[in-house]
Design a protein around this nucleic acid. Sequence first.
DNA 1: GGGTTGCCCGTTTTT
DNA 2: CGGGCAACCC
Length: 826
Amino acid sequence: MNSLFDIDEPENDNTAQSNADLNNATSFNPLDEAVESIFHTTSSEESRINDSFSRKVPDTALRIPAPTFLDELNPEQRQAVETTDGPLLVLSGAGTGKTKVLTTRIAYIIQQRKALPWQILAVTFTNKASKEMKSRLERLIGGDAFSVWLGTFHAIGIKILRKFGDRIGLAPNFIVLGSDDQERLIKKLMQEAGIDIKKYTPATMLEIIQRWKDKGLLPEHVSSAHQSSFCNGQALYFYRQYQQKLRALNAVDFGDLLLLPLALFQQDASVLRQYQQQFKYILVDEYQDTNVAQYLLLRLLAKGHNNLCCVGDDDQSIYSWRGAEVENILSFQTIFPDAKIIRLERNYRSTGHILNAAAALIAHNTGRLGKTLKPIDSHNQGKRLSVKEYFNGNQEAEQIVEKINETYRAGGLLGETAILVRATFQTRLFEEKLLQAGIPYKIIGGFKFYEREEIKDAVAYLRLALNTNDDLAFLRIVNKPKRGIGKQAMEALEQTTAEKHISLFDAITWAPLRPAVRKALESFVTLIKRAHELTQTEKPADTAKLILEESGYIQMWQMDKSPESEGRIENINELYNVLEDFEDIESFIEYASLVTDTDENTTGDQLVVMTLHASKGLEFKTVFLPGWEDGLFPHQKALDESGDIGLEEERRLAYVGITRAKREVFISYAQSRKLYGQWINPIPSRFINELPEEDIDFKPLCSYNHFNGTSSQSEERYHSSSTFEDYFFDTRDESHSAERHRPVSRWDRESVSSGFETGFDSSPAQFVAPFFKSSSNKKSKRIGKRVRHETFGLGTVVREEGERLDIRFDSGELKKIMARFVELAE
DNA sequence: GGGTTGCCCGTTTTT
DNA sequence: CGGGCAACCC
């Protein structure tokens, strides 16, 4: 068997036993009260709510108004709400009201007194989604919404581990590691083992480990079928080491928040049984993005009452690269033979053209469950999708921003518009243009608040103040600000740590240290001890303020004269604000380790720019989809690494993008794009060809005067391009254009390695990949080399044709010179 | 111990 | 092109 968590195997003693127990479970269970008291003792606030609720059950239930909320549902939605018992899969297409179904379903279950709020488990993927669901549920049923077990998979996992983690050797105050801590850890392990970090990167190693965890596999469960050849097959060894290290630190990573509850359930059937009995109804959002570990968790928990309702859309599965298994949703009916399937196909969001185009696109994928989205107003098709070609990425950004500016100035709302890109680097251009145009905007998913260096550092100070055994926090800040602690000192500390089995912090007392270093470290110890006292007496925000000031950390940034330092101090002040909302530092740290971005909600009327991935679940009146170029979208790496599977996922991403729009879609691509400082010339995305002609309005660059019927300014705009590049591409030799659309991917390093000069940027030389592959396709050894000519002086080789070189001299002149007339200049 | 240079490499990223 | 990091030098 692939996993020891394979729940269909009866020989698994624990599971078999719990199965037997569960078959005896009834909908009313005298154990409920006991279970409740077990589950609600740590969080005082929550237990208060739950206790008062449980005492007032009949009252509260009666006070729930008649279910008028059912009247707001269409027949399919209503069916999805009323089919409460047994396994149910709700195939919910984009914009068909799945959140409404989920929240109404919870309300309905409670109203029908099929379960008490805390007997319902509702899991989402993002904090944002759970927040949204909680507030909508509150509108339906009031304060009871807070008693429902509603949260992300990871938040649920943490809750379970805090309570029962000790049964698998995890102290209740374990810390949750962020990705940087994880990487640091695995890197250290690999270096200690003498691995060439360059060749086998810690990030890749972590990814392999993560995939195992996603599959619910502990090191001892990794069979040959799951083995990895990475790093000469040593990945498993490092997985084992890594887990040991985590345990020694009393830490878990994100994967563990799913994996360890599984391990716990496997090891301690009584714990599993308690949860199985508690959760009478389980609801899952975004089921298409669950991984195997999540699936196993759900299956185990649902064995109690068998009321599992999964909502998802296989066409929107875009996270397989992170371990999500579309298979979970595709084979739902096989796994649960008595499962009902309900399709939600009435789309309340988009126009006919948008839905047609999206449907035609996604129809190119195989292995779908299949569904057809129908618009509410089938008579009005709306506007066709615009597909537009631009000279280059710069012009694309400029004109999209210009277009947005027009509607903005005409009184349109920015909040109804989004620019959705494939890769984060694309946001840079838009940011620049939006800034110039003075349009309020928000880039989502760029820098996460809690991933910023200064925030991580501040949190590390708090962590260490709370627990001096937190070696990772220690490592992060021991020399920040500089205290003169270097490699030598750290090695001494680590050695002492290893010998005496004590923390790095405690090792200071024993380690052999040079006097100056000892003095520095001892005052650090005093500082942290004082910080610890502060945590006992002061409020969290004041504690943080005092620690960061007394440690000299704030001063460190104040002294720093780099342009970001001011922002860093602002961020720390923002952190104090966040801390105001917390009773104690422990709960803040937990929050900080689970929440990735605080500022997911836009303030005021702002345009949003974000990746397609980040846009899932959102909707906008107008959506811009720039950069539809083969190599960028679909992304070359997805194609290279996963072939047709990768292509299909990219196509689903395109589907997600299009279906975000209510009214208008603007797809575009550029003939040239700057990548890694060099120009490349991609071809239009193959997805564009998959859009039905009757749903789109295609505007190629060369024929703008024929196609543009709406605005007379358009022509002028094309010619008033503001950059050298625009001008250059506008006037360049037309003989190249015939080659422009050759279906050759140019999104790789090879294709940009040869090129010729733009002719405008004299120094340093800028390269432009040709529209065609250079006649001699062999790689050139001379391009980019600095050379000296007797009369023209220094220059850079920009093109090579046998012995004939094109050289851009520093004077700005471009000349053809035979190689023998120049010498290499070093 | 700390600053500097030179080389490598570059998706997406709910938690 | 630019960030990150390791080797290298003061």
